[in-house]
Design a protein around this nucleic acid. Sequence first.
DNA 1: CTTGCAGTTTAGAATCATTCTCATTACCGT
DNA 2: ACGGTAATGAGAATGATTCTAAACTGCAAG
Lengths: 161, 161
Amino acid sequence: MSAGESIEARTQTVLAELKRAGLKLTPQRIAIVRELACDRSHPTAQELFERLRPGHPTMSFATVYNTLDALVRLELVSALRLNGDQTAMRFDPNTTAHHHAVCDACGAVIDIPALPPSAPLKKEVEEIAGFTVRAEERIYRGLCGRCNDSRKQGAQSCPSR
Amino acid sequence: MSAGESIEARTQTVLAELKRAGLKLTPQRIAIVRELACDRSHPTAQELFERLRPGHPTMSFATVYNTLDALVRLELVSALRLNGDQTAMRFDPNTTAHHHAVCDACGAVIDIPALPPSAPLKKEVEEIAGFTVRAEERIYRGLCGRCNDSRKQGAQSCPSR
DNA sequence: CTTGCAGTTTAGAATCATTCTCATTACCGT
DNA sequence: ACGGTAATGAGAATGATTCTAAACTGCAAG
């Protein structure tokens, strides 16, 4: 998704892609796509389900998972699973090449645009056992700006999450 | 674990650390430590349990998980969870700084020694929202040497995994 | 060498995330 | 509007992991 795109514009773009792929535009899918369209919080399926329930009391988990699977397969959404105790898959409407920074304190997940691939690094990996690198995933661990500030100022808890 | 250390030597080192941390050296723990000591295959708890069962018919999953948790907490073993459909935690006796390369074809997980931290990269991340980087995890995706070769030669399946 | 007890183990139940099943429903091309 | 086909919903099934409660056992102190 491009930076300044509105939720509605992005929703329509994604729905058009779904249709182009031969998938039916059901009310459930439309709601899921709209909910995730410009969400930068990397929600889990559970979280999306709970947000959608008020407006769609009969929606089932299966539908949420099915739709997210389709979106991931069509590369309209990306999926990531963090290490540690966060075992649930998270979904991200940002489909541009990027990595993730995870805050040790508040758990916030922040997108980090991928830098142009570093040729020396890639080469070094390839020299090990002849491995051919196709893609690279990175997770940076540390403290987000807010938690950094809170820590300096005293014992405030981090507001996000 | 240093490269040339024998299984028995590494086992004794780890057991000494466990004892030093106030944990009792039970036969189960000793078996688990020895099984994992020089294993470079990144096994899951399930896999370790199945390998240990013949020699310890009454060992339970809880014991395997408890022991692995203790080893991870003491930083004598590291844990990693891959993206994709491999949802189970994997355990790695290599406690030196390293990343992982995962073969798209056969699923093999290979350790890649971490390069000295790249200052420019770190800085670039830190400039985004004031994030302070403490650590970085990387997963390289691609084809391992064996699968690369198999692919060139014809339709052989990859022997490992 | 015994003893005691805190730390461990065990088997199975519980939990969490995810996938599956299959009967019912509804999109959408004609 | 109709019908075929795909999607949905409710709940069961699965897989990984954690919890529970009762029985057991390293090991330090006597």
